[in-house]
Design a protein around this nucleic acid. Structure first.
Length: 183
DNA sequence: GCCAACGTTGGC
DNA sequence: GCCAACGTTGGC
């Protein structure tokens, strides 16, 4: 059974933990601890697989942006920070015998030569349905469609052909990957 | 189950 | 700092 590689987006506040911090970590690897939202946890626990790739997104920054790519190198296991009363993410309702919160390990894979800002994402055709861009969206672990992945990655590598204005009639006619159900 | 109050997220 | 939107909590 060859699993299809899935794509994700992980948010982090650079003041707390930045892509540079991850790059500086041993083996460019860290545990993605501190997730305390059930929907985000479920994505990690149930759907994230080794080999999946994720965008690393800087939130709460002067320039919120996708800054690089990480790879899932270990699948879900208990988030021990929930058991530590001194940890900011301590949750007394989670206990080691049946942990409420889980985490995965990720390894930095590539830093984008050119960060893709939130504004740029908003301005790029084909990303209209990205979870990140949905009004009121706060999910810190979210799936990314394959088509969206390719577009954002191209932007991160400075390929501007996907950008509005540079694109030739990007808004005209049907686009690949546009067929999903309206919501 | 309802819903108001509260805390958090996150862009601006 | 402001504020909109969301998730969680807890009384009823």
């Amino acid at each position: 059974m060859t699993a299809v590689r899935q794509y994700w987006l992980l948010k982090s506040e650079p003041d707390v933990f930045s892509f540079d911090d991850l790059w500086a970590a041993p083996d460019h690897t860290t545990c993605w601890d501190g997730i305390r939202n059930y929907q985000a946890r479920n994505f990690m626990r149930d759907d994230m697989k080794r080999g999946d790739l994720a965008f690393f997104y800087h939130s709460m920054d002067d320039r919120p942006a996708v800054v690089g790519v990480v790879e899932v190198v270990r699948e879900a296991y208990p988030d021990h920070t929930a058991f530590d009363a001194r940890d900011p993410h301590y949750d007394p309702k989670s206990n080691p015998n049946s942990p409420t919160w889980m985490m995965v390990d990720v390894r930095a894979k590539e830093r984008f030569p050119q960060p893709v800002t939130l504004q740029e994402l908003r301005d790029t055709p084909g990303l209209e349905q990205m979870e990140l861009l949905r009004r009121g969206s706060r999910l810190s672990v979210q799936p990314v469609r394959a088509g969206e992945w390719e577009i954002v990655r191209a932007l991160g590598h400075g390929r501007s052909d996907a950008r509005r204005g540079n694109a030739r009639r990007a808004d005209a006619g049907p686009r690949v990957g546009r067929g999903s159900a309206p919501r």
